[in-house]
Design a protein around this nucleic acid. Structure first.
Length: 474
RNA sequence: GUCCCGUUCGUUCAGUGGUUAGGACUCAGGAUUUUCAUUCCUGCAACAGGGGUUCGACUCCCCUACGGGAUACCA
């Protein structure tokens, strides 16, 4: 049997990182088993329609390298992949349900429903539809349907228990009495998620549903639908939720939740995938860094964790830094150049500067700040730095430095090292006492990237100018 | 309120009856380095509580507590 999974987001404008993980797991599972991964757009809520959301979604999925085998713009005969374009299909299917008595029309107003719920809650009863329209005779129902606003509801059994198996949760049982007569078709004629997802999953031959834990309580409704239609239900795996630091459901209030937010903050898609993959699953090895190929090779749906996972940015930062450090020279430079914030930097020697800060980055957005040391003149030294500059040995170093530097034709990192070596030889000053004064003379700071890079970036003339200026001042 | 799911270091993930309870992130200390960063080493730190079952429970069962989710003409 060919495995078919799907990612079925509703296009609300951006992809939640939780959704990214769901998509990723669906993708990994399908790929690891030689199956197919499908993208379906769940746009049945017209009130939540967001312009451009689908385009953005497709673009983000592309960036994340989660390629689907069928979906919008990639038809395979089972489409269309927008639910809004599948209304005739739902209509046809729901008619069968009506015919067979598994569903019924409900003419109750939203106001009445709200008041019913309210009294139920006050009495401590589970809130659910009270079944007022359940027993309207078919003929009368049909007649009223043409004139009155109505919805179509599922006729859930009122006793017994629904048992099912979930790959992540194991055996779960829910009393049918707890299950509501779910609305299948809204008064505007659009299907609800419950109807649409069952019908589509069947028609699209989905074999495994991998989705968030919030859907677990709805499973009986879906199972009832499969049974009513006479279809086999797919296997299911309900994923644990992603949480805020305080363990509440990951929300916008407490930080970024959109994939797009993280991308625009300079996180690499690969790092994001790697990080999210390990939130709720692990291959049982000590390693933490996995390429997409490795994730596909290692992924095992039976090793998915059951409890919610806090989205820990600190670890993401570390991991992203690992990915940045691992990038080869040209890839790194190409990416890094997208993150410059102004032109106040020597373009010709930009590469030198960027390479110099590579190991200190956790995201690409750190670049402008890290590049600070390269632009403008040296900073004004602090008290501690000043003390170092004023030491006698420092003056000796500066003098020797100038003498040696003048004779040079040019200055690169390599040449700088040689230069320092010979200054050390001629002055007898070494280690910290040798390097610190030079660092401070060149940058004004006591910390920063490797000095060789800085010297190379400044060039011979500027080196001499700054050191001379320092010597004259002290 | 009702139903469902969950609970191992601060975080994340291992560990499925007998382990000095392990790795990673964070944090602290140390080494390397011209500084910072990197890298490496070391350390701190956990089985929610109570009952069972068992010769023996982090591991199995029950209860409690706590956390989360669902209870929409949203998905």
């Amino acid at each position: 049997m060919t495995i078919v999974t799907r990612f079925a987001p509703s296009p609300t404008g951006f992809i939640h990182v939780g959704s990214q993980r769901t998509a990723l797991y669906n993708y990994l599972f399908a790929r690891s088993r030689g199956g197919k991964f499908i993208l379906r757009i769940e746009d049945t809520d017209r009130n939540r329609h967001v312009e451009g959301a689908v385009e953005n979604l497709l673009e983000t999925l592309r960036t994340l390298d989660l390629e689907f085998d069928a979906g919008p713009g990639k038809e395979d005969g089972n489409g269309p992949y927008f639910q809004s374009e599948r209304r005739e299909i739902y209509q046809k299917e729901v008619d069968k349900l009506l015919e067979a008595g598994y569903a019924y029309r409900c003419f109750c107003s939203p106001e009445r429903l709200e008041s019913v719920r309210k009294t139920q809650r006050e009495k401590g009863l589970p809130t659910s539809y009270d079944g007022k329209c359940r027993e309207i005779p078919p003929a009368e129902s049909r007649q009223r349907a043409s004139a009155e606003a109505h919805v179509i509801r599922l006729k859930i059994p009122d006793s017994g228990v629904c048992r099912f198996h979930d790959i992540v949760r194991g055996d779960v049982k829910i009393d049918w009495s707890q299950v509501d007569d779910q609305i299948l078709v809204k008064s505007d004629g659009y299907p609800t998620y419950h109807l649409a997802n069952v019908v589509d999953d069947h028609h699209m031959k989905i074999t495994h549903i991998i989705r968030g834990e919030e859907w677990l309580p709805s499973v009986p409704k879906h199972l009832f639908l499969y049974r009513a239609f006479g279809w086999d239900a797919p296997e299911m795996a309900h994923l644990p939720l992603l949480l805020n630091t305080d363990r509440s459901k990951l929300s916008k209030r407490q930080g970024d939740v959109a994939v797009e937010d993280y991308l625009s903050k300079g996180y690499l898609p690969e790092a994001l995938n790697n990080f999210l993959a390990l939130l709720g699953w692990n291959p049982g090895r000590k390693n933490e860094i996995y390429s997409m190929e490795e994730l596909i090779r290692e992924f095992d749906i039976n090793r998915i964790t059951r409890s919610g996972a806090v989205f820990d940015v600190k670890k993401l930062n570390w991991m992203n830094g690992q990915y940045i450090r691992k990038m080869d020279r040209s890839c790194y430079l190409e990416e890094a150049k997208k993150w410059l914030d102004d032109v106040n930097i020597n373009r010709e020697k930009l590469d030198t500067a960027l390479l110099a800060v590579k190991t200190s980055l956790s995201t690409f957005r750190d670049i402008p700040e890290k590049l600070e040391v390269f632009r403008g003149g040296p900073a004004k030294p602090g008290p501690e730095a000043k003390a170092i500059l004023e030491a006698d040995s420092s003056k000796e170093v500066f003098q020797a430095y100038l003498g040696e530097a003048e004779a040079l034709t040019g200055l690169d990192a390599e040449g700088f090292k040689a230069l320092m070596k010979s200054v050390q030889a001629s002055t007898g000053v070494k280690g910290k006492h040798l390097w610190m004064p030079v660092r401070i003379a060149l940058t004004g700071e006591m910390h920063g990237p490797e000095l060789g890079y800085i010297a190379e970036y400044l060039g011979k003339e500027e080196n001499i100018r700054r050191v001379r200026k320092q010597l004259e001042q002290s």
